[in-house]
Design a protein around this nucleic acid. Structure first.
Lengths: 340, 340
DNA sequence: TTGAAAGCGCTAACAC
DNA sequence: GTGTTAGCGCTTTCAA
């Protein structure tokens, strides 16, 4: 088989007796080209199956048609689905996604951001695992626009796309109150805006119904994402050990809730009769669990779509005031929070 | 705040009164540079936080330090975990991953392969959703080495990394036989090498124990990945409708098995007492299901690691005879296949 | 040990 | 409409 070297604009120009610039203009749909020339060029391009070299184009034009994506953990269904939805949007606009996983490690995140910038991405999307803003100073020095998702930094004037986590907390809590529970606990995350906001939503809803939240009814944990079931199990044990234990618990995410349910049944109690439990994320397997798990769905695919569209907009109009897009969540009720 | 333009080799060269070439050599650790010069250059690079422009480097050298990854569905935990593990390996070697999702659509896959090649990746990793070899002809024309994973094409002399799916089928089936089952069915996939191989393993194991496999005991399905639970549910209904229904079923993957269990219990039968069911993939939530699900674990993280290492090797030695690396699976027993 | 020259494949600005 | 010139930031080759 003939192994053809990659075809270049130069080859087409030579074949047709025109200049490289003319060919380049046709390629980019530039209008100041004669109809006849355009046809000949396009024909030859097709014949040779010409594929533009994006490195060269990027170097010359400063636009790479590439988007950088940094997630804390690709295995977490939320980030996987977000990435999938995002890449679908970008594919339609002929953008590629360079993927980086920070493994919830700020130092790796920092390194990955650097690597991405070196590659000349047009825009960066990041769900940062930083507890502070350090990694963003580096970004501040660049002209590359960026967009936060899932995890916000209110003090950073940056674009953000995420679920409305205040509503998540309120919605979950109001649902538990609505099925007649009064002693409601919360297994919370740490150091991320969804953690803060869901907790705040929880407190707001409780306050509104004049229900007390004893200090030890809120268990704050690390590692909600990676081994959430273990985290949830241990957190729930603390709640069960309280003198007056809760009759309902709102868990930061579904895996934590699964662990919490396991701890509850291991202690000889029933879900939802003794303790109702709700999670967040609405994982596809929630229906098939030992106790089908109620959850707050934050519309992951839509988040990915919106983030993709905003990212595209930023590539053409980088200098615009920060947008803050919050997608409202929805409640999905299953057996784990059925009324008594 | 000072917004610095990106630092270039030229800037460092000017500051130090040396040539760009000298700086470039220091950057790449070239040995023919004086110790004194090297130190000065490195110092200045650090001071200015120099980051090489990978586009320019790629264009000039032909090496991009970038790997292309094409998966059929990023949301499937197997591909998500594979991608995570792979990107971990590549990060340590300062390679980036460009991610493309084919959505199980051969035409999208074809487009994505083209896009990746335009970007000058050093090596391509792909779990192809093609039923045939069409998309690979394009690859054959290029000098970019590529490596198949998860899904093999035996007639294509290409590198492959995957689980030993023949063993997967045998292991699952032997386990079901080992707990005393004799009428064993299989819910199978279509058009992919894991489907063929698991089916073959199933048949081999049955034949070895002189157990019959009636034709309608093998239900071949599409869409095992995306909505596997629905697929499994419907396939299981067919098996349940048989005059002599199976007393055990080996399902292509865990989601299918979950659907199969749902269909079984919906029909008023018990798992595992009436029908034992085993899946494949060993998803993290298998422990928490209504019926904890036995499964074959194919060591996804290790597959990703191995694929990453082979990919790196291919970037330095592209022309080597195709390797075929099969990782042996392991059996994980849970309640869904406990002996009566 | 260092650097000048050439070029990777493309685009931007401007002349014709 | 089309082409010329210049250059993106880096590497490669080869001469000094």
């Amino acid at each position: 088989m003939m192994l053809a070297m990659a075809v270049r604009l130069k080859d087409i120009a030579r074949d047709l007796g025109v200049s490289v610039v003319t060919v380049s203009k046709v390629l980019r749909g530039n209008s100041d080209i004669g109809e006849e020339t355009r046809k000949r060029v396009l024909k030859r391009m097709k014949e040779l199956n010409y594929q533009p070299n994006m490195l060269a184009r990027g170097l010359a034009s400063g636009k790479t048609y590439t988007v950088g994506l940094v997630v804390p953990d690709l295995v977490h269904p939320f980030f996987a689905e977000f990435a999938k939805s995002l890449s679908g949007v970008l594919r339609k606009s002929h953008r590629a996604v360079i993927l980086a996983s920070s493994e919830e490690d700020p130092e790796i995140e920092r390194q990955e951001i650097r690597t991405l910038l070196r590659r000349g991405i047009d825009v960066l999307l990041i769900a940062s695992c930083q507890p502070n803003l350090r990694n963003f100073y580096e970004l501040g020095d660049e002209r590359t626009p960026y967009l936060l998702f899932d995890r916000n930094f209110p003090h950073l004037a940056a674009h953000f796309v995420g679920s409305n986590d205040l509503m998540v907390g309120e919605m979950a809590t109001n649902h538990l109150i609505g099925i007649g529970r009064k002693r409601i606990g919360h297994i919370a995350g740490r150091n991320t805006s969804p953690s803060y906001d869901r907790l705040r939503g929880f407190r707001d809803a409780m306050a509104e119904h004049r229900l007390p939240v004893p200090e030890d009814y809120v268990v704050v944990c690390d590692h909600m994402e990676e081994r959430g079931d273990k985290t949830g199990y241990e957190a729930m044990q603390k709640l069960l050990a309280l003198k007056e234990r809760p009759d309902a618990v709102f868990c930061y995410n579904d895996m934590t809730a699964i662990g919490a349910i396991a701890a509850t049944t291991a202690a000889g109690l029933r879900v939802p009769e003794d303790i109702a439990i709700i999670g967040c994320g609405n994982m596809p397997y929630n229906d098939y669990l030992k106790v089908p798990l109620s959850s707050i769905d934050h519309g992951t695919a839509e988040l990915g779509r919106i983030a993709g569209e905003l990212a595209l907009e930023l590539t053409s109009h980088p200098e615009q005031p920060p947008k803050n897009i919050l997608v409202p969540p929805t409640l999905v009720v299953r057996a784990s929070t059925l009324p008594r």
